Amino acid sequence: MYRRSLIGAAASAALLPAVGRAQSFPSKQLRLIVGFAAGGGGDIVARVLGAELTKSGGYSVLVDNKPGAGGNIATREALRAPSDGHAVLFANVGMLAVNPYAMKDVGYDPTTDIAPVCLAVDFSNVLVVHPSVPAKTLGEYLALAKRPEGIQYGSSGVGGAGHLAGELLKARSGTNMIHVPFRGGGPAMNDLVAGHVPSLIASAPTATPLMREGRIRALAVTGAKRSPFDPDIPTIAEQGFPGYAATNWYAVVVSSKVPPETVAALNAILTKALKSPEVQAAYAQQGMETIASTQAEAAAHIARETEIWKKVIADAGIRLE
């Protein structure tokens, strides 16, 4: 009996470090790393969530913008951080499912270096133009793009969902759409509103408020179906390109070196905040659907998206530099 008690006590003691780590997490400020400049979709997602974490959980939160290289700079920054789970990355489709397969060397492998925590939101991008552009439909826009000089379209950066959606439309339509990369959706939208770039493929959070104010004109959404938040905007697919679909999403991920029990604790903390009615209402106002997934669901979604976009990249011969 005494020996069994000793064995039981030893087994319990072996579990204490892992349990202790999970219960004491977070033990310092949470750093939410965003790969694009302030004002873009990822920045809005992170700031809404960060505010809820502070309000309801009492956590200290820093939103840290690290724009550049289509989000690769932010990804490498997150992977260099201490592997204690306090540095988390808001990663979009480009950072996890596109850049590693369309760029020469991104400096990380999402299949081995990254651990998914949860999916946060999902949304379509939208093709918008400055009011001075003489196009009120996608067909009229593509007619302008067929001219020898083509038409410029901006995006939040090389390899982002907007860029890839534009390249897919360019390949399907055979037009001269000229990509103009920015260091985030916010700067790109500022230049569109100012008339410095005629069109933009923007995230819903960046475009929706200005669309509703009438300061920019929406021509099409990139998803497979119309957005429930803006149902009057037709899809690209229904305007002559059946099967076209290019959505964006943001997942929260960490380094694969972060202990599994810490990743699980992060999932619990973040999904609780994401399920807050205030957070979901704030995202819906920006044209986004809140997901708040499990770790397994996030991993499966990223894997599916990776296979889809790897094939698109290979079939279209897309190379991003």
Rank of each mutant, 00 (worst) to 15 (best):
L192A: 07
V193E: 08
V193M: 15
V193D: 05
A194G: 14
A194I: 07
A194D: 10
H196G: 09
P198T: 08
S199E: 07
L200C: 15
I201A: 15
I201G: 15
A202I: 03
S203A: 13
S203D: 11
T206G: 14
T208Q: 10
T208P: 00
L210R: 10
M211Q: 12
R212H: 06
R212A: 03
E213Q: 14
E213P: 09
E213V: 14
G214D: 13
G214H: 10
G214V: 14
G214L: 11
R215F: 05
I216S: 12
I216E: 07
I216L: 13
I216W: 10
L219Q: 06
A220H: 06
A220G: 04
A220L: 06
A220P: 02
A220I: 06
V221F: 08
T222K: 15
T222R: 13
G223V: 05
G223S: 12
A224S: 15
R226V: 05
R226C: 01
P228N: 03
F229C: 06
D230H: 14
D230K: 09
D232I: 06
D232P: 02
I233N: 01
P234H: 15
P234C: 10
P234L: 04
T235E: 03
T235D: 03
A237S: 04
A237H: 02
A237V: 01
E238T: 05
E238K: 12
E238D: 00
G240C: 00
G240W: 03
F241H: 12
Y244K: 00
Y244A: 04
A245R: 15
A245C: 15
A245V: 10
A245D: 12
T247R: 07
N248M: 03
N248L: 05
W249L: 13
W249N: 12
Y250N: 11
V252L: 06
V252D: 00
V253S: 04
V254M: 03
S255K: 01
S256L: 02
K257A: 11
K257V: 03
V258D: 01
V258W: 00
P259C: 07
P260T: 13
E261L: 05
T262S: 02
V263P: 04
A264N: 08
A264H: 09
N267R: 12
N267M: 08
N267T: 11
I269T: 14
L270G: 11
L270P: 00
L270I: 14
K272Q: 12
A273V: 03
